[in-house]
Nucleic acid binder design. Structure first.
Lengths: 351, 351
DNA sequence: GTGAAAGCGCTAACAT
DNA sequence: ATGTTAGCGCTTTCAC
């Protein structure tokens, strides 16, 4: 419509519709106690004036903004972009804008900073990404403050209204099953950071599958990393340096799997004919190398969508509705080029 | 400090300091017309009450929020994460929070949507990422609206106060020089999307260097892509399919270079002994493959920092200061493993 | 240099 | 079912 000199306010609409300010306000807030007829009159006036309520003024009255916050650790940026994308999908359609807030890594004050952000901006709600979402102190703070939250997790640490959880454990079990089906018996594992529950969960899935298949969990087949590329390189070197090296390596995330691929290449070990490698996350680059990486699709975008859907419901004061939004995401095994049958010469060698 | 039951307001501070509301307001806004003494009294009261002004209320009066917007195309997510990181660095220290706004790709209404966002949230300023930043319609809209802006660009399309520019042209020239120095004479180029000025600039840098070195720009050595991985695969296949294939390939960005690496691997052409490949951007994955990719560091985080520094200055109404912040970024050639001397058997073959 | 009153655009509480 | 009054926390008049 014609861009009038000034933006229309609630007063203009009230005048135009011949009702009081408050009635317009009721319409804006979808109050049920307005006649069908008045409702329409107001709606038409709104349309005619091309009116949009001012979120700042509304917020001032409500003591609350129409902003969601995305709280994350600033380490793995590839990870957040996808979730952010999904979060935006839903939050904007629900009338919320998104403020991003990376927490300084290693700054012990980060919880206070998040509280300050919530206070200052009067955030309606926040979505917390792993690994911060695993932190019990943070959640304690969140519960004590007037701000809704939803956590994105790999472990069911909260009720359905407050989390979206990926079932990492069974996904890694799927990975192991896939390898076992290909004939692998001697499988190495590069573990994620100590302290991380997501990483622990992934290893649990690995051990589930091995035990179910009556395979031994060998100590020499487990090395520790920290989910960084570099730690994947180092971990793979350790695994591949022994006398009876594994015929397959499972890494707790794609970054480390990529590190393992590079380590194998430098050692002259061909993937997948001599060594299978699997990652976890399906980061964009997993498909953009040769051989492309077999991994598990984390559906990060979808998780972001579900999280903001839950959060919007919570902000509407409908926790039951939030709980009904899907909470657990099953992950898909994406078989690509980095896994193959176990090399015949070592078939049957299970130690 | 002790978290009192309610947040302190300007009234509490006024009472505590024994002055009027307005004087407190003057202190908050660093008005020069306040006595040194009063100033201190108020500052102390603020500290004692642990007071922070409410941005919403301030915004309502100012008709302006304390929010920056980050406007980007939702295609290349790896790209935005780094810039976002840099933008946050500076904007938060200047007292602004960041709202992110991806524009639906292919949606022709996107400029109107950006305007709506600015209007609704009364954004203090926006930072626009390429390729949207090249759009003259957008800039026209931005100039007509009460909102500061800074563009991130590869071409000098604006004055120093309103852009941060990377010198892509000379960076690609550096790349070409590097290859020529290694003995390459027959160099292929995978061009970026038609319409993109950044892509045109990069090719210009390539042609600069070749001409300066008295090498011919052969038509068969130029193929078109669109900065996607897939187009890099296709482009490299075209370049490598001919009788006298190039001994080196320059891609207009890393994504396409990664595509070229995969294409070469599938064709059984070894990189770098039989073929050198160079990218542009230094995306994280460029270093996480084997052979690792020689490329140009785009300094995205730094560009984000500079952009928000400029934007903050503009919002303070100090355009000269904004203009003085560094505007042009020089990029660094990062030599890794994907480039090597031209294979001896084809040395001297310049067509 | 400082303060009192009015108002930014909206909603809550209480009428009617 | 709708309107009136007061107020959210701050800044802008324009006095003094």
């Amino acid at each position: 419509m014609a861009q009038n000199s000034k933006k229309a306010t609630i007063n203009d609409v009230a005048r135009e519709a011949g009702v009081s300010k408050k009635t317009v306000s009721r319409v804006i807030n979808k109050s049920p106690e307005v006649t069908q007829k008045t409702y329409q009159k107001v709606e038409q006036a709104i349309a005619r004036l091309d009116y949009t309520p001012d979120p700042q003024a509304r917020g001032l009255s409500f003591r609350r903004s129409f902003l969601f916050g995305l709280i994350y650790d600033n380490v793995n940026t590839a990870f957040i972009a996808d979730i952010q994308d999904g979060v935006l999908d839903k939050s904007r359609s629900e009338g919320y804008e998104l403020v991003v807030h990376p927490c300084e890594h290693g700054n012990s004050q980060w919880i206070d900073e998040v509280r300050l952000l919530i206070d200052r901006l009067k955030l309606a709600g926040v979505i917390v990404l792993p690994p911060l979402s695993e932190n019990p102190e943070l959640v304690k703070m969140l519960k004590g403050v007037d701000c809704e939250y939803v956590r994105i997790l790999s472990v069911p640490l909260d009720d359905d209204a407050h989390m979206v959880q990926s079932d990492d454990r069974s996904a890694v079990a799927q990975i192991a099953d896939h390898l076992i089906e290909l004939g692998h018996r001697n499988i190495g594992f590069i573990h994620g950071p100590k302290g991380s529950q997501a990483a622990a969960e992934r290893y649990a899935g690995f051990s589930d599958a091995l035990l179910r298949n009556k395979l031994k969990l060998l100590k020499r087949n487990l090395v520790w990393g920290d989910h960084s590329f570099a730690s994947g390189v180092v971990g793979a070197h350790k695994l591949l340096g022994g006398k009876t090296r594994p015929s397959a390596i499972v890494a707790s995330n794609d970054e480390m799997a990529l590190g393992a691929m590079v380590a194998a290449a430098k050692l002259g070990i061909d993937v997948p004919s001599q060594l299978s490698i699997v990652g976890f996350d399906d980061e964009p680059q997993a498909a953009k190398i040769y051989p492309s990486l077999t991994t598990v699709n984390h559906n990060l975008k979808r998780m972001g969508q579900l999280a903001s859907e839950k959060l919007a419901a919570l902000c509407r004061n409908q926790p039951e509705q939030a709980a009904q939004v899907q909470s657990v995401i099953c992950l898909d095994l994406i078989v690509r080029e980095s896994t193959a049958k176990v090399p015949p010469e070592i078939q049957g060698n299970d130690n």
